[in-house]
Amino acid sequence: MVEVDWETDRRDGVTFVTVTVANTRTTPQTVRLESRLDGPTWPPRRDGVTAPEWDGGVWEGTVEPGRRRGVGFASPASPTEPPIEVLEVSRVSEATTATSDEVLAALDGWAPTPDVLTRGP
C-alpha cells in the first residue's frame, strides 16, 4: 500500500502544494501523481531544468520499501481538495531504466575554472 498525505498553502496568489508519499509495501513502487489544480503546474527546477520526475502536471517517481518521498509544486490556481490524484502505483520492474532527460537532469552543472578563462601573457 502507498499512503499519500498533502498540504496546501496559498500565499500572494500562488498555491504551494507539499505531498508525502509513503511506501508500506515490501518492494519498490513506481507512483504517478497528477495535479488536480485548475491551472498550470509549476514543478521545482534546478539550474533552470525541471526536475526529471515531472512531465507537465504529472509526477512519476520510485519510492523504496518502508520509505517516504516528498513532492512539491506550485500553481497560480486556487487550492482544491484533494490537490493531487494518484494515477497509478506499480511494482518496479527489473527492466526499469532512466531516460536520457533524467540522466542529464541529474548531472551537476559544470563551468571552467577562472584560470582557464584568463588570457596569458
Rank of each mutant, 00 (worst) to 15 (best):
P79R: 08
R25K: 10
S75L: 05
E34C: 01
D5C: 01
E102T: 10
P121V: 13
D55T: 03
G57A: 13
W54V: 08
T96C: 06
G70F: 02
E81D: 12
E7D: 14
A51H: 09
T80W: 02
S78F: 06
F16P: 00
R11W: 04
G57R: 11
G56N: 03
D101Q: 04
S93V: 11
T80S: 12
A111V: 14
R25W: 05
T96K: 14
A106F: 07
F16G: 11
D9W: 03
P76S: 00
A22L: 06
F73A: 01
E88R: 13
S78M: 15
D47N: 01
R10D: 10
V58N: 00
E94K: 09
R11M: 05
L117P: 03
W42A: 11
D47H: 12
R69T: 12
R10T: 03
R45E: 08
T118W: 10
V86C: 13
M1T: 02
E3K: 03
T50G: 07
E60Y: 03
P44C: 09
V103H: 00
G39I: 00
G66E: 04
P65C: 12
R119I: 12
D5S: 12
D115I: 10
P121T: 11
E60I: 09
W6M: 03
E85V: 11
P114H: 03
P28Q: 08
T15A: 01
G61M: 06
V58T: 10
D9T: 04
T50Y: 12
W6L: 06
D38M: 07
